[in-house]
Nucleic acid binder design. Sequence first.
DNA 1: ATAAAAACGCAACATTGTTGCATTTATGGT
DNA 2: ACCATAAATGCAACAATGTTGCGTTTTTAT
Lengths: 135, 135
Amino acid sequence: MVKTLLKNKKLRFTAFRKEVLDVFLNTPNAVSIGDIEERLKQFDRITLYRTIKSFMEKGLIHEIVMPGDIKKLALCPAECSSVNHVHTGQHIHFRCKMCENIFCLDLHEFPEINIPKFKVDSIEIQGTGICNICS
Amino acid sequence: MVKTLLKNKKLRFTAFRKEVLDVFLNTPNAVSIGDIEERLKQFDRITLYRTIKSFMEKGLIHEIVMPGDIKKLALCPAECSSVNHVHTGQHIHFRCKMCENIFCLDLHEFPEINIPKFKVDSIEIQGTGICNICS
DNA sequence: ATAAAAACGCAACATTGTTGCATTTATGGT
DNA sequence: ACCATAAATGCAACAATGTTGCGTTTTTAT
């Protein structure tokens, strides 16, 4: 339920936040701010930006950026406690070339990356190709 | 030499393009458009944006986007013939938490990623941690 | 040398995101 | 249930980033 979802992340429950969170819950893929704006009947743009910011700071959503694409947002999976762009879960971001959608997928066998002389803290993997629906 | 670098990518040689390309050649890490602007004495902002766009379209440079960070640009390695964000090389983008710089590093053992029902064309890996200079 | 194509430079505009401030709302303690 | 307060909202103004159109200049191939 939306209210507890917000409470769990120490975010106050408001009518507007519920609307925004519902957009995420009703969409299987990542959405842009423009996508969210289209689905809200009437809203204040500044409040939306601040809402997104709060959601990100508290680790409710995370942003996905891919070269040549606009910024997208997606709910953080339950196991992932990301705070300010630092994730602890193991998911891959996948962009389908057909439908242009971006998906967060859980990966069980997450690769190890070693770089000589570099200390690697976290790894993010982004893939492109064809998704299960389009193939 | 700068002239042949441009010619090889089917880009015309101009004084301005030389200046911009020199910035990339003289910097070990990825740079933002703001970084480039700081290093050019006087320039036209629109021309810079169009120059960057041409460089990207012809695969001379590529853009690097990381969550929470501004867009950066870097030369494509010689072996990599990237055109419009589609790379063929195998390099990782690494962001150092200390100096905030982003580096393109060649990776020899590039991991295989399999996602059930998804057809994976290309993989991009982004790491964060401490670079060789800061550690 | 010259003609065609591309790049440049300027203006104007579009998009995206931020800050300050007064008002309203949610929440915890009584 | 009430109240104080801390947070969220809504508005205006602004800042940063990126784009389009168009006339002029430069590069390049012939």
